[in-house]
């Protein structure tokens, strides 16, 4: 029983990680209607910047944390302006190729600058076991907490602010948005900036658990995709719930049902299963387009 509880909680902790990555994917999808394959590598690179600020710059964790988010935002904004803007009216395949190019570039760049040996990333949370339990540590609780905070901020931003509304409009129907005076290009770039910022938060939370190296996000991004799709690719709340479901399911199935060798397949089966059976995901909106 104790081992079972342990598996559940460790699954929830992993789920928090997947959820934060899924949030970044949802963010960029909501803002641009694209799925960014370079999301993981951008987050990884931002995390290296955070690491450098702490280790080389000697900054306090939270200062570095906030600074990294700002840098990531500017970086995401710049990438949209420089790389994706010229592809604006090109077929979707060109854009996907650009995403894959970005993935390779960031991966190689990180290795070249920071090296491939793993690095310990500090955690801002205390190391003592919280409330005397051994199932979760403060970092895991903190990860879940920060993910929920990011989720609430996102929700508020999209639902309650005019800028959020403008961004949704720009993604949903660029033509009409432009006609009512929204600067669509700027909105897309803002969306990229926000997604990169959320990704950097995810990266900095993940890095403490899985250690920082240029290939850190490869496996995680796959689980992030599964979570985002399960919850609904356009629903931030759904993505977070999807993350927790994937994390727990993966642990429990791996330990008691299918064995560790097939754990990764769970994510892949989920992706294909959701796309086949319920493409909108558990909480996503079904979109009907008039042709």
């Amino acid at each position: 029983m104790e081992a079972f509880l342990h598996q559940i909680f460790s699954g929830l902790a992993a789920g928090g990680i997947y959820a934060s990555v899924a949030l970044a994917l949802v963010m960029i999808y909501t803002a641009t209607h694209h799925i960014n394959f370079a999301q993981g590598e951008m987050a990884m690179f931002a995390t290296f910047i955070g690491w450098a600020l702490i280790e080389w710059g000697g900054l306090n964790f939270w200062v570095a944390f906030l600074l990294t988010i700002v840098i990531a935002f500017c970086g995401g904004f710049a990438i949209e302006r420089i790389v994706l803007r010229p592809l604006h009216d090109k077929p979707v395949l060109s854009i996907i190729i650009a995403f894959i190019g970005l993935l390779v570039i960031f991966n190689a760049l990180a290795g070249w600058i920071f090296g491939f040996t793993i690095k310990a990333f500090p955690s801002p949370f205390p190391t003592s076991p919280p409330f005397g339990n051994r199932f979760l540590n403060w970092h895991e609780i903190g990860t879940v907490g920060i993910t929920v905070v990011v989720l609430l901020l996102l929700f508020a931003f999209f639902r309650l602010t005019p800028l959020g509304l403008a961004m949704r409009a720009a993604a949903f129907n660029p033509e009409s948005a432009r006609l009512v005076g929204i600067r669509v290009g700027l909105m897309l770039a803002l969306g990229w900036g926000l997604a990169a910022a959320i990704g950097s938060v995810a990266g900095m939370l993940v890095a403490h658990v899985v250690y920082l190296d240029p290939n850190m996000m490869a496996g995680i991004l796959l689980y992030g995709f599964a979570s985002a799709l399960l919850g609904g690719i356009d629903n931030p709340g759904g993505a977070v719930v999807g993350g927790f479901i994937v994390g727990v399911a993966e642990n429990v199935l791996g330990a008691y049902v299918i064995g560790t060798e097939l754990k990764l397949s769970v994510a892949l089966v989920l992706i294909i299963g959701v796309l086949l059976v319920k493409p909108a995901g558990l909480f996503g909106r079904r979109i009907v387009t008039r042709v």
């Binding site: 104790e2 342990h6 598996q7 460790s10 902790a13 993940v206 658990v209 560790t260 060798e261 754990k263």
Partner: peptide, 20 residues
Amino acid sequence: ELSYEVTDPTIDSQIIELKG
């Protein structure tokens, strides 16, 4: 006797099982 894949993000679950 447990295995993991290089693509697994963490191996926490396996360590818990080994302890158990």
